[in-house]
Each structure stands twice: as structure tokens, then as C-alpha cells.
Amino acid sequence: MKKIIATMTVASALFASPMVSNAAFGDQNLRSGMKNNDVKQLQQVLKQKGYFKNSTTTTYFGSITKQSVVNFQKANRLAVDGVVGSATFKALKVAGSNQSSNTVTAGSKVLKQGMTGSDVQKLQQILKQKGYFKNSATTTYFGSATKQSVVNFQKANRLVADGIVGPATWKALGNSGSASTTSKPSSSTNTASSASKLINTGKKYLGVKYVWGGTTPSGFDCSGFLDYVYKEALGVKLPRTVADIYKVGVSVKSPSVGDLVFFETYKPGASHAGIYLGKGKFLHSSSSKGVGISEMSNSYWSQRYLGAKKINY
């Protein structure tokens, strides 16, 4: 009993302030079905970051709390299991906590159409500085013009284009540079550069044999190849399986160079993926040929194509 009380005391300390501590959460995670004050404090932090949508918080970890955790995990490239363990606690501290002096101070507040306030005007000012808000004057009202400006910014920065300013959009507003009203956002150049690095790195391993479960240049399976290339080229860690990579990606109607293309092969759902090279070709590690380049129009791949997704770097 003393051990349980001590563990819960540590948990409470984690949420003592709006910033979650880096401290470990003992041996106890928070998950569906639990009921205690730590759950309520978790909900409060998720609410501050725009993920918990209920008007009030409770001490019960139910389906709404789990979905809020899942959404947070997806946005922060974590294992998407709805369980709050040490990695999720750490991310809860990091997400939205490093706002620069040029960003909106209310960076953890979700803004959407219909809202009013000084935060909306600050948002418009930043969007105007970056060339997205075209009105001559800014206001405190989040109307259709503001929403369209946000959508355009989100599309240019490879975000979910829903017109809602949540943590991911705040972060991009702070890191995408200060484009003028007559120039393109610097993120366009950064995106092209990242795609080029990704492809050039991947092509270095053309001919490497396929190995089930392989994660190194001595032999790659499909997801092992993608993860290795992303880490080497961009310092990005991908989930281990194609199914999980598919979950964290942002769907697009058609792939751009550097996007991932997904296929349904030996089991239902996404089970194979590759890096889109443009002109209908993609780079991947197949079980028959190892690392190579294939045509999307190939009869085998075209019949199994699921769609394309962007991975936010």
C-alpha cells in the first residue's frame, strides 16, 4: 500500500504545473479504466494543448481521454496505443513548450472559426508576416478569411489542412521562417531539400538484399529500410511497422516527391510502403528484389495501392 501511495505521489508531482516534469512515472502508466486525480491532471494538460475537448475534466480515464491521448501521440510521432507511459509524459512536456519570442504566447490554445480575442489578432499578424493573411488590417475575429489563411499555411507546411490552429500549426508558425508577402514560405525550400536528402540517401542502398526483420544495410525489410533512411537523412525515427507508419502519416490525394506510398499485400491494411520518386516510380525494399525502384503502374502494385501520405519531419 505504501508503494502505491508513493507511486501516486510521484504521478501527482508530474502534473503540478502546466509543464509536465521530465521525471519518470514510476512503474505505473495511465490507461483506460483507471480513476484517480492523476487522470484529471492528465486531462487538464491535454486540454491546455488542445486535445481534450470536453468542457470539464474528471478523474476517470474513459474512451474520450484515450482518444485524446491517441491524437496527441499521433501528432508527436509516438507509439499510438492510448496509454500514457514515460515517452508520452516526456512529450507532454516538450510539445508546445519551446515557443520563441516571435511566436504567439498562447501557443497551446486552439483557435478556430468563430472565436474572438487578442490571440486571433496575433495569429493574423503572424500569418500576414508570412504572406498568408491578405487583408489590409488585422482584427480580433476568426472569420472565413482567417480560416482560409490557416488552411493555405497548413497545406504549404504539410499539415492537416482543417483550418484549426492547434499545437502542430502553432509549432510550424514558429519554425517556418518569416516569409514576406511577396515570397514563398521558406518551408517550401526546406521540404524540397528534405525530400532530396531522403531520396539520395535511399538510393545509396540500391541492391541491398531483403531480410525479414532487417533494419541495417546488411539486409532490410520494407519498414526497416524506411526507418533507416529517415534516420540517416533527416534524423527522424519512424514506427517499426508499415501499419503504424501509415497511422502517423497525413493523407494526400496524390503523392509528391518524398511522400510515402502504401500498399496492401500479404494482409489487410497497409503492409508495404516506399518513397515516391516522382514520374510514377517509388523506392522500396521488396521481398523479391531487395532495395530497388518500381513503377506504380506495375500490375502487381497498381492493384494493391492504398494511397499516399506525408510524414511531417
Rank of each mutant, 00 (worst) to 15 (best):
M1R: 15
A6S: 02
S12D: 12
A13F: 10
L14G: 02
F15V: 14
A16M: 09
S17C: 00
S17P: 00
P18M: 11
P18N: 07
M19F: 09
M19S: 05
A24G: 10
F25S: 09
D27L: 12
L30H: 11
S32H: 10
G33N: 09
M34I: 04
K40S: 12
Q41F: 00
L46K: 13
K49Y: 10
G50T: 12
N54D: 08
G62R: 10
K66H: 07
Q67I: 10
Q67E: 15
S68Y: 12
S68F: 06
A75W: 10
L78E: 08
F89S: 04
A91W: 13
L92A: 14
K93P: 00
G96I: 06
G96P: 01
S97W: 11
T103C: 03
V104K: 14
K112C: 01
K112V: 02
Q113E: 03
Q113C: 02
T116M: 07
S118Y: 05
S118A: 11
Q121P: 00
K122G: 01
I126W: 03
K130T: 12
G131N: 13
F133R: 10
T140Q: 13
Y141G: 04
S149N: 00
N152C: 08
K155N: 11
L159D: 10
G163D: 04
A168G: 04
L173P: 03
G177D: 03
A179N: 15
S183L: 10
S187D: 05
T191H: 11
A192D: 00
A192W: 00
S194E: 06
N200S: 14
T201Q: 14
Y205H: 15
G213M: 08
T216C: 06
S218M: 05
S218R: 11
F220N: 05
C222T: 09
G224E: 05
L226D: 03
L226R: 09
L226P: 06
Y228P: 02
Y228V: 01
A233S: 12
V236P: 15
K237H: 13
L238T: 06
T241I: 14
S254H: 15
P255V: 04
P255Q: 07
V257D: 00
F262H: 13
E264G: 14
Y266V: 10
G269Q: 10
A270Q: 04
A273V: 14
G274V: 09
L277I: 14
G278A: 05
K281Q: 15
K281F: 15
F282E: 08
F282T: 12
H284N: 13
S286K: 14
S286L: 12
S288P: 11
G290E: 12
G292P: 01
G292N: 12
I293F: 04
I293C: 05
S294F: 03
S297D: 00
W301H: 05
W301S: 03
S302G: 08
L306G: 01
L306C: 00
A308M: 02
K309I: 13
N312C: 01
Y313C: 14
